[in-house]
């Protein structure tokens, strides 16, 4: 399916987070891939430059090094704080990740409960502020709440990453209206994080004006993860192109695409 790069005559702004310009607007989450080889293939298919990782206890029995595989793919690491339920734990996890991976970028997650994995807004805000003050580049996973997104931006987050629907649910974008409110107001990049189930969800996020999409389960848990990686990359690109191209407004009634002018007079003669 490799094709020669086609130059598309459209003006787009670069995708820049905290001064770093990324060629790919798709950020890949590494969770859920059954094998490291599949993950590596999916990374190549997505052409992602930034991939998330988590920190967990060392397992002496573990086979294969995730870091080596990711290094081999030439991607940048975005450590997350998944599994943290308090600001304190999230801040400590971010500091451990900085120590482990030598990056001060962090995908900040502070979760409210196990059933929904929805963010805990007050804890998230506290952790974000503390990490920004400590020199981190903070990309928070947030609710699709325009006010919370604004507060996160105000404390110095480098991007905001609202959910479309709960992590791993594949329910798509449940509240496109809120997402648009966030996008309209944000002066940092908005990256849809969580909820993508298939390619059309990613395309919709970009059409609504998101700057990027973070996707994990939809690719990793697809029946064919590598094929889905191609599909979602194409969808992100298509959605972005459509956004830049400018869609037609929705109308209640039809508007003919063929002009009436010059229409033949086919009225039968009056007897």
């Amino acid at each position: 399916m490799e094709q020669a790069a086609e130059r598309i005559p459209i003006t787009d702004t670069p995708f820049t987070i905290a001064g770093r310009t990324l060629r790919s607007r798709l950020v890949l989450g590494t969770g859920g891939f059954p094998r490291l080889e599949t993950l590596a293939e999916a990374i190549r298919a997505t052409r992602a430059e930034l991939v998330t990782i988590a920190l967990r206890r060392i397992d002496p029995q573990a086979r294969g090094s995730l870091v080596d595989v990711l290094d081999g793919c030439g991607v940048e690491l975005l450590p997350n704080t998944a599994g943290c339920y308090t600001a304190r734990d999230a801040v400590l996890t971010a500091k451990l990740a900085r120590e482990a991976f030598g990056t001060d970028w962090v995908k900040l997650e502070v979760i409210g409960d196990e059933r929904t994995l929805l963010p805990d807004a007050p804890e998230l805000l506290v952790a974000a502020e503390e990490l920004v003050d400590d020199g981190f580049t903070v990309l928070p996973y947030t609710n699709d709440d325009p006010i919370l997104a604004r507060r996160l931006e105000d404390v110095g987050c480098a991007a905001v990453m609202p959910l479309g629907s709960p992590i791993g649910s594949g329910m798509g974008i449940r509240n496109p209206y809120n997402l648009q409110l966030i996008i309209e107001r944000a002066s940092v990049p908005v990256i849809l994080d969580a909820g993508v189930g298939t390619a059309s969800d990613a395309a919709l996020a970009m059409e609504l004006g998101c700057d990027g999409v973070l996707c994990a389960s939809a690719i990793a848990r697809a029946q064919d993860p590598v094929a889905m990686a191609h599909a979602i990359r194409a969808a992100v690109e298509a959605g972005r192109l459509a956004r830049c191209a400018g869609r037609i407004p929705r109308r209640r009634y039809a508007e003919a695409s063929t002009p009436d002018a010059g229409l033949a007079d086919l009225t039968p003669p009056v007897e």
Binding site: G29, T30, T52, A54, L55, R57, I58, L77, N80
Partner: peptide, 10 residues
């Protein structure tokens, strides 16, 4: 003591 390393995660 917590000794941690990279694991796959979204």
């Amino acid at each position: 003591v917590e000794a941690l390393t990279a694991m796959q995660g979204g």
